[in-house]
């Protein structure tokens, strides 16, 4: 199974009784019911439903671990921390203590949404073809750099990624992460805009893998050798 280093990631620990409720109110997917030893991905959105960061949340019982995209770290904190108010939420940055590696191309649907710790490595299966592995830096996690092999796989499997399809100008319904928007969980920041898009079926875009010879280059979000990823109308 191929492994790539998610070297531009951050890892934070969230402690306190209000963490899940707090995150549920500020992000698109359901976090409130996230059980111990389970994982969920969600998008923290601003009032215009644009992505501040797409994060992976692991519930270890005593605390949550949140993995996000390092370039978005400060804007995530700037958005989140003023809203803590009287909530019991405490955040620690443990990025310098841990490495994150992505296992991909698994094609196995069992155990999606669960986390498992084997030895010194924690495995969080976020989808049928992707698992996040987190380990302390003192543990050697073998991996390849995130190069064209990973991106060719993403193009073939229509998998969006940070800095390519997923960025701060994007709305979840416009960058291929529709499944991270929970349709019935109730209010969250940006929800009105997303609900309007969904109910009117307006403005929603999809990822497409298009032959480079047939492509309009300004639409390309990830360029591949033969095909490229674009964001296009449905």
């Amino acid at each position: 199974m191929p492994k790539v280093a998610f070297s531009d990631s951050y890892v934070t620990i969230w402690r306190g009784t209000d963490c899940r409720l707090f995150l549920d109110g500020l992000s698109s997917n359901q976090v409130l019911n996230l059980e111990k030893n389970h994982v969920v991905q969600t998008a923290i959105l601003n009032n215009n439903a644009k992505i501040i960061d797409l994060v992976t949340i692991l519930n270890f019982g005593d605390f949550l671990a949140i993995i996000g995209y390092l370039p978005n770290f400060q804007s995530m904190l700037d958005f989140v921390t003023p809203r803590i108010l009287q909530s019991e939420v405490s955040i620690s940055n443990i990025s310098n203590l841990n490495d994150v590696v992505i296992l991909y191309d698994q094609n196995n649907d069992s155990g999606i949404g669960t986390i498992e710790t084997k030895g010194d490595v924690t495995y969080a299966k976020v989808s049928g073809n992707m698992t996040y592995c987190i380990a302390a830096k003192k543990v050697t996690l073998e991996s390849e750099p995130m190069d064209e092999t990973f991106h060719e796989w993403r193009i073939s499997n229509l998998v969006p990624w940070h800095g390519y399809e997923i960025n701060s100008n994007q709305i979840p319904y416009k960058c291929g992460v529709n499944e991270l928007v929970h349709e019935s969980k109730g209010c969250f920041t940006g929800q009105e805009i997303l609900t309007r898009m969904r109910t009117r079926n307006k403005g929603i875009k999809v990822l497409k893998s298009i032959d480079n010879l047939e492509i309009n280059s300004h639409k390309v979000t990830t360029r591949g050798l033969k095909n490229s990823l674009i964001i296009d109308n449905q």
Binding site: G25, N47, R83, L85, C187, F188, T189, Q191
Partner: peptide, 12 residues
């Protein structure tokens, strides 16, 4: 009269 995080606009 308090404020919580969340809601469609960030504070409730």
């Amino acid at each position: 009269v308090g404020v919580l995080s969340g809601g469609c606009s960030g504070y409730m």
